[in-house]
């Protein structure tokens, strides 16, 4: 009789019984928690990825336009055709430039937010970084087209400053130049940079926030000037954030097909190639082969980053 007073009375009702059961069987609870995401990731996500991979090993019959369901590397050979390889090189170069530029611009912003911004300034920082993500992607891109166009505000502003010559000399550079910013690779790059910048700032800021100020002081105490502290302490410790951010900017640029269509020269990027091959041309195997390219590049990039010790501090 005494012991019965120690415990609350046994609860009834299916929810209580279930929660008691979960408490007694933590492994079962974990299994139940993980089941939906594993099903989602495993079947729907990875499954579709594999079927894509499979598609790339089929080929299209040039005469009938039908897909031949037998294994061949013909589609990959087609991918290596100069015109297609050109698309890959163009896209990858753009992704590299956008990523490097985003890292350079994002670092000071993220550093300021992590080290100095407090209270309402921190809120202001998050709003400032995230606000562009709240408005429509298409609207932003068309807005940029207007800004960069020949009759656009940027040209008007530069004309007021008597700097039109500067813009013209930049635009006269072969390959990256063009008639106006909105039809040049420079414009494409600027818009990519604008659209993906938050994806670089946020992981970088999270990584920098985790670097204790004490470590920077210790570095300075041991004789490092600011640039040495940056190189030997801050940068290696921020590397996981930088890698995470670069995965976003790099892969988003690799896969995007709207920005290069609206802004830039009319030459194709991987995303556009995939879009046109699977839609208009009905060449799903080639579209699939094209979309394997970013996957391989990203896998290679991560492997390199790991080999360089970028994740050692995790």
């Amino acid at each position: 009789m005494i012991s019965s007073a120690i415990y609350a009375p046994q609860r009834s009702g299916s929810v209580s019984v279930f929660s008691d059961y979960c408490w007694r069987n933590p492994r079962m609870f974990l299994f139940l928690l993980l089941l939906p995401p594993v099903l989602w990731l495993g079947i729907i996500y990875l499954g579709s990825l594999f079927s894509l991979l499979l598609q790339s090993f089929y080929s299209i019959d040039e005469f009938t336009g039908l897909i031949k369901h037998e294994f061949t590397l013909k589609t990959y050979r087609e991918l290596l055709h100069p015109a297609n390889l050109d698309i890959v090189v163009r896209t990858v170069s753009m992704a590299i430039i956008v990523t490097i530029a985003a890292a350079i611009i994002a670092f000071p912003i993220a550093y300021y937010a992590a080290r100095y911004a407090r209270g309402k300034w921190k809120v202001f920082f998050y709003l400032g970084v995230m606000l562009p993500l709240w408005s429509s992607y298409l609207v932003k891109i068309y807005a940029w087209k207007l800004i960069l166009a020949k009759e656009g505000i940027l040209n008007w502003f530069l004309a007021k400053l008597h700097l039109t010559w500067l813009l013209e000399s930049v635009l006269s550079i072969p390959i990256i130049g063009g008639n106006s910013l909105s039809v040049s690779y420079i414009g494409t790059c600027l818009v990519f940079l604008y659209v993906w910048l938050p994806f670089m700032i946020l992981p970088l800021q999270a990584a920098l926030e985790r670097v204790p100020v004490k470590l920077l002081e210790a570095s300075s105490d041991l004789g490092s000037k600011s640039q040495q502290t940056f190189r030997h302490v801050l940068l290696p410790l921020a590397m996981p954030g930088l890698i995470a951010g670069s995965i976003f900017t790099f892969s988003l640029t690799l896969g995007d097909y709207i920005i290069p269509q609206i802004i830039g020269s009319s030459r194709l990027f991987i995303g556009q190639a995939v879009y046109s091959h699977q839609g208009i041309a009905g060449n799903i195997p080639l579209a699939a082969a094209f979309s394997i390219v970013p996957i391989i590049i990203m896998a290679f990039y991560l492997w390199m980053a790991k080999r360089q010790g970028a994740f050692d501090v995790l």
Partner: peptide, 11 residues
């Protein structure tokens, strides 16, 4: 300086 929580470089 020998710091309070040592401040060793983790990397």
């Amino acid at each position: 300086t020998v710091f309070q929580d040592y401040a060793l470089f983790p990397h």
